[in-house]
Design a protein around this nucleic acid. Sequence first.
DNA 1: ACCTGAACACCGTTCAAGT
DNA 2: ACCTGAACACCGTTCAAGT
Lengths: 241, 241
Amino acid sequence: MPSPTRTATPGSPAWWSAHLPRASEKRRGRPARSFEQIVAAAADLVDDVGVSAFSMRALAARLNTSTATLYRHFAGRDELMVYVVDRLLGEVRASSRPRARRTWQDAARERLVALHDALGEHPNVLPLLAADVPIGPNGLAIREDTITMLIAFGFSVGLAARAYTTLAHYVIGFAAQQHAPGAPGPRQAAELRDYYRGLDAERFPSTVSAADALTTVPLQTEFLEGLQFILDGIERAAGRS
Amino acid sequence: MPSPTRTATPGSPAWWSAHLPRASEKRRGRPARSFEQIVAAAADLVDDVGVSAFSMRALAARLNTSTATLYRHFAGRDELMVYVVDRLLGEVRASSRPRARRTWQDAARERLVALHDALGEHPNVLPLLAADVPIGPNGLAIREDTITMLIAFGFSVGLAARAYTTLAHYVIGFAAQQHAPGAPGPRQAAELRDYYRGLDAERFPSTVSAADALTTVPLQTEFLEGLQFILDGIERAAGRS
DNA sequence: ACCTGAACACCGTTCAAGT
DNA sequence: ACCTGAACACCGTTCAAGT
């Protein structure tokens, strides 16, 4: 009962095909509550201690149960992590209600900045998100909504799809890299700046002189600039077709 | 002797500050050979079995030694992985000798495509690369060379730094996401296409109709398109300043 | 001086045994 | 029917003991 298909790896298209009904439909009685409770507790635990320190034993302890009980609801740790990722994407959707915008760039920027911000709330989950194309129910919904928006602004289906893929790669890749070490606070930026400054000026002249520019641009600003580069590029591609 | 600073986390600026001499200078006698041999064997093992299946025990077995011997050369698994990443970046540098180009876009595109291609040769190392700004000797050299090139083409130091950061984020983030699941072959793309096609057309109309566009664009093409978006955006920013 | 077997304190996962 | 203690086969890391 825990898992209809034992063979498919959790998070893959084949796996989600078998699990979509389970995740989207309300499950009756106590099992459904357990399911959500466990995923919620797992998400909290990942937020608190990170992916590598997360353990089934620690999760069981938090829930005052045994690890064997967890395996009655989930095929294993990997499957549980897939649900943790989709839960995060569900939070992303809930936290941002995009309004109508005049231009596609404004509409796209609003959504992608909201996505980036929401991802930053759960830095410890980001490595999981970057490791696979998220195609759970909430990942699907975000993709669907954004592509629909682009088509409504006159994009061809093909360009809308390619634009979305590029933008999603950028946002997730950027967030995963920026929030990875732990705290992305200014302390780390200053540390990195001093490191660049202290390098051998003979071997690394450009890096030494660019030490400030490489480190003191606020993350949000850098993210917005890169995003604007991509939006402008897409605009150009849309104009040509 | 293994590690001058026990406190700094491997790969951080503080850690590299203490280890740069060690990594860049030729170390005398057998220890140097052991050091390189261990890193090379570790890189091979990660290539073969992936980051999560990599273990100090398996590495020791491959080298016909014991785990305790590994700890005489490295502070631990994390430190070893940092060297594996920098070794990959060393391979990237060795495999591409950029030639003189007429435009900055051509020069930048050549370098970043070469980086992307080289990263694709070691998909199992990519999760490690995405998790931290790579500031080891080879990461530094790649950053230095590219920023120097941009400055030579007339970029301000500031714009060169921001352009490099954005481009590096894009290439690494894209590669990490594309090569993550395992084999990125067309089989997986077809599986994902069928998954999108088979979704409920009422709830996901755009995704269903974009199923082909979302999955059948070759990875290399998609990468190049996104890269071009960013290059065009940077070009515009350069023109304005 | 250099190396290692064996230990310590953990993992993910499973299952016989309980209620 | 549901749950769990205890086990199995692993980890990363350390250290007393060997050569």
